[in-house]
Amino acid sequence: MNARPTPAPQYPAWPQFDDGERDGLLRALEQDGWWRMGGKEVDTFEQEFADYHGAPHALAVTNGTHALELALEVLGVGPDTEVLVPAFTFISSSQAVQRLGGTAIPVDVDPYTYCIDASAAAELITTRTRAIMPVHMAGHMSDMDGLAKIANDAGVAIIQDAAHAHGATWQGKRVGELGSIAAFSFQNGKLMTAGEGGAVTFPDSESYEQAFLRHSCGRPRTDRRYLHQTSGSNFRMNEFTAAVLRAQLARLDGQIDTREERWRLLGGLLGEIPGVVAQSRDERCERNPHYMAMIRVPGITEEQRNELVDALIERGVPAFAAFRAIYRVDGFWEKGAPAETVEEIAARCPVTEELYRDCVWLHHRTLLGTEQQMHDTAAIVAEVLGAR
């Protein structure tokens, strides 16, 4: 007789909210202005977010993709420049470069952390390279020591794609203390959210002031005569979004503590399942907020991985297929692609070739569940794989 299948865990809902968000929305509603130039919520959120991440400055923007575009523009990315980006990431990392007229150069990733491989990046730097973009995959910080040395030796900038890494630390340093610009996302699934939104942190006043101008159509704060000093666009965050994000930031630390504790349990349980490999951790990444719980099943095909994801969803586990290799989607080739073929890039990105086919990730709300739910999650993964 077959054992009864493990029931679907009732994970916490996402997004989470309480009276903090309600009070913030009313506070924004009842103030004199609803946009950043007339209200107080965006200014206050920027200061709180900068302080939390150890950055001298933060600028709130419309979304995470715009955060990347704005940061890259400040760094001088445009035609005839290249930016090294992980081959395994969400497509915004490369498209932000390409929309500015730059060329995105895919770089293979580490087989254990899934972050950009520093040694592979070093081999791809040219005289046109303007920046290296590490993506802190699933909240695990990239090898910032190795990348900093490479960038310093080559005279190029680093821009951190920290869309997954709110609250992460590397060797005792927060994202904003690492001396480089960082871009964050507040999209609906992110670790703190207002549905959409983004932020950029800056290590110096000069880059912050330039970004401020460009995110507000090139117009200074006090301008009354439409004296636009630079080109730019309207990437301004509104007051209601900022009010919600202030409440989200206030509970982030406690949620990270819970996810760190639960991943130690769930990651260990998943690693005991035959054929399953959980994302590893570089101990220099001292605090990982765990935007995703990532696992691989090496040897399965992309079709089998997709069937696995569907089966997990049917069993009540919020599972997703991992990102496709950026060079294996049509949008990557529309403009700003390197002068290589898909297969040429694939040949130098063997880890990415495996990851995009055999990797699965679970939404971070699973890691806000109970210890029993971690056992149930692992049991369901084992049962689904055993039934293949």
Rank of each mutant, 00 (worst) to 15 (best):
T169K: 04
D223M: 10
S180W: 03
T222F: 13
G195F: 09
A165K: 04
V277Q: 11
E177L: 08
S207M: 11
G268D: 15
A293G: 14
G198D: 00
L249Y: 09
D257Y: 09
G189N: 08
Q160K: 10
Q279E: 15
A293P: 06
T193V: 10
G271A: 13
L269R: 06
K173T: 05
L266W: 04
L213N: 01
D204Y: 05
Q187A: 14
R287M: 05
S180M: 11
A165D: 02
R219T: 00
K173F: 08
S280H: 08
F202G: 01
N188A: 15
F235C: 03
G198N: 00
L269E: 07
A211P: 00
Q248E: 09
Q255Y: 08
L270F: 07
P289A: 08
G189L: 06
R174T: 04
R214E: 05
L252R: 03
A165Y: 01
K173G: 04
A163H: 01
T222E: 11
R251M: 15
D257G: 11
E260A: 11
A199T: 00
G195K: 12
G218A: 10
M294C: 15
D257W: 10
K190M: 14
I273Q: 03
C217T: 12
N234S: 14
R296H: 08
G176Q: 02
R251I: 15
L191P: 01
R221Q: 12
A199R: 00
E261T: 14
T222S: 15
R264S: 15
S205G: 13
A183V: 03
A168W: 02
G167I: 06
S280Y: 04
L178N: 03
R259I: 12
G172I: 09
A183C: 15
V276R: 02
H215S: 13
K190N: 09
G275K: 01
L266D: 05
R225G: 07
M237E: 02
Q248G: 06
P289G: 05
R264E: 15
E260K: 07
V175L: 13
T193G: 03
Q160G: 11
H290L: 12
D204F: 07
L227E: 02
A293E: 04
Q248V: 05
S180Y: 04
A242R: 01
G195C: 12
E206M: 14
R264T: 13
E239M: 09
K173D: 04
M192W: 03
Q187W: 07
I273F: 09
G179Q: 13
I158W: 02
G167P: 03
T201H: 03
T193I: 04
H164C: 13
A278M: 10
S216N: 08
N288E: 12
R284D: 07
L213Y: 02
L191H: 02
A250E: 13
W170P: 00
